[in-house]
Design a protein around this nucleic acid. Structure first.
Lengths: 217, 217
DNA sequence: CCGCTAAATAACTAAATAGTTACATAGGAA
DNA sequence: TTCCTATGTAACTATTTAGTTATTTAGCGG
């Protein structure tokens, strides 16, 4: 028999490991909150799927709401970390912007839970994020990155002057975000599958076109 | 004393009126579902806020899920009805398109509950809409309207040929929808109020610009 | 290798929740 | 006027739920 513990068929080991338990809880919480929303997710289910005890959730995270807040902060942390690895400094402005648009698309495609978590948070009027200390610092690099691309594009003579970084950023997010989060009602309203390879390719190309046309002189 | 009934201080009259009761239930359900989502809304609260008895909800609508489905169908019905009153036939293509973009913006601004209901439905993978009989017919006029504008613009020589009606429609919705539904996290991330008069004016102008640049030759 | 603390489990509680049952009555049809 | 049924009320039930309490135990510092 195995070393010491009752790890049921194929599950992770169950010796005492605070860090690992917290990670399992966070992973399970992210899945449940994104699948069902803050109101729909169940603490018991999160505990079970984390292969942990419910008591540990309250021990490490305090309450369901605080757990949600941590999951959300981590999700923002993750997308900003991925963005900051893009390294667009060396590219011409147009190429940099296209790369950012395609990155955003790909990130949403690969991390659908980010979208539903943000939706859930907005349903609750961002009350968790509002009380978050580090969220401002987490997002600052994104603003700088897009502002730099805009400035560079103007200097290169390819972008219009006076564009608002926020408006551009919101629009870049919008054209991808909306497509993904509303893909289910979209499938009904437009009578097509939004997630076929062909549909995805067509949409990201359309989005790149939308954004480049928006900024070009 | 009043005619017959125990209407508590200032409330609506309480004589028997099936139609009025159903309307009050639907109005209260729309408010609660949009405020809290399908999972977060409470049947008891809906009954209380409708100034009705919970039993009536089950009598008229069958279940919480069926009530949600009816609320959602009505919401789609309402936006399509408002759209169909636009009468864009007489306008040049560009003017027609701009009017549609501004209408969409204004409708979302005035009916925020539509946005959260649609979000809630997408969280549930559109399972209510999927089983809805009339939803296809409800949405058809929208497709025709936008396709007509596109065709007209090409004939007028002001729009590019070959644009996909769905991509355009989705983008028109996206740039307004995302701004509104994500205005709470947006306020935190961008450190500004998304709902001031000035911010709203700037965004709708930006959106009109985005869409017109997208379609122009 | 001992003992203490942090990690973990299981069983419990009080409140909330979707849905039901039993009963009451307004008001139109006869 | 008298039924009869659709409209409405109130109290109940079986479950579920977030959060707690009581208890056990792994494994590190000494």
């Amino acid at each position: 028999m195995a070393k010491s513990m009752a790890a049921k068929d194929g599950e992770a080991p169950r010796t005492r490991d605070a860090e690992a338990t917290q990670k399992r809880i966070l992973a399970a919480a992210k899945r449940e909150f994104s699948r069902l929303g803050l109101g729909g997710a169940r603490v018991d289910d999160i505990a079970e799927k984390a292969n942990a005890n419910k008591r540990m959730i309250y021990h490490y995270f305090g309450s369901k709401e605080d757990l949600f807040k941590k999951v959300l902060e981590d999700a923002y942390q993750d997308i900003r970390a991925a963005e900051s690895k893009l390294d667009l400094k060396g590219l011409p402005a147009e190429a940099a912007l296209e790369k950012l648009v395609r990155f955003t698309w790909k990130y949403y495609l690969d991390h659908p839970e980010f979208l539903t978590l943000v939706n859930s948070e907005n349903l609750h009027k961002a009350r968790h994020l509002k009380s978050s200390q580090n969220i401002e610092a987490i997002n600052r690099p994104l603003h700088n990155m897009v502002q730099d691309i805009l400035d560079r594009g103007v200097r290169e003579g390819v972008f219009r002057a006076g564009l608002d970084e926020m408006q551009l950023n919101v629009t870049i997010a919008a054209v991808s975000y909306y497509y993904f989060t509303n893909r289910f009602t979209g499938a009904v309203v437009y009578k097509r599958d939004f997630m076929t390879e062909e549909a995805l390719r067509a949409r990201i190309d359309f989005n790149v076109d939308t954004i480049l046309r928006l900024v070009r002189v």
